[in-house]
Amino acid sequence: MSAMLLCMLMCALTHQTFAHKPPAVFAIFEKYGSQQGVTMLEASEELMKNYQIIHFKSIIFKDGTAALPEIREAIIKDKTNAGRIKESLRDGLIYSGYYRFKTEDTTINRYLIFKVGEKNKTTLIYIEGKLTPEQLIELLK
């Protein structure tokens, strides 16, 4: 009986921990978020309630040249969990991309948006919330 309960507890914890496995790009936020030439934003439901977003993370590199290989590598890893992918490639490298992650909870959507601009100005955004793809499009128009 105890073993069964412990097993149930472990299952519950495991489910909580891995139900939404953090995207690989989160490592980029961790590593580069506090560096010079970088702006990292972490926003929760309170700031984003008008957008039906519960978690918003963005990181902007004034010049992402050094970090770009690592960012692209992380994106490639995350692509395996994406149900919807739209990318723009140049010389085989991702320059802009939209990824909608697969999710067990159909009420919550998770998106990753990536863009490399002029002079390798790089922006990476992670969005989690109830907003639909249509609402996201409206937000980014």
Binding site: T39, L41, A43, L47, M48, F56, S58, I60, R84, K86, E87, S88, Y95, S96, G97, Y98, I113, F114, K115, G117, K121, T123, I125, P133, E134, L136, I137, L139, L140, K141
Partner: peptide, 28 residues
């Protein structure tokens, strides 16, 4: 600061990704 960073983030991906999103809108 938070709002400015939010606007900048969205602005940065807004222009370049527009074509992709228009295409996506058609898909949805």
């Amino acid at each position: 600061h938070l709002n400015k960073a939010l606007e900048t983030s969205l602005h940065n991906v807004r222009i370049d990704i527009k074509d992709v999103l228009d295409e996506l809108q058609n898909v949805y």
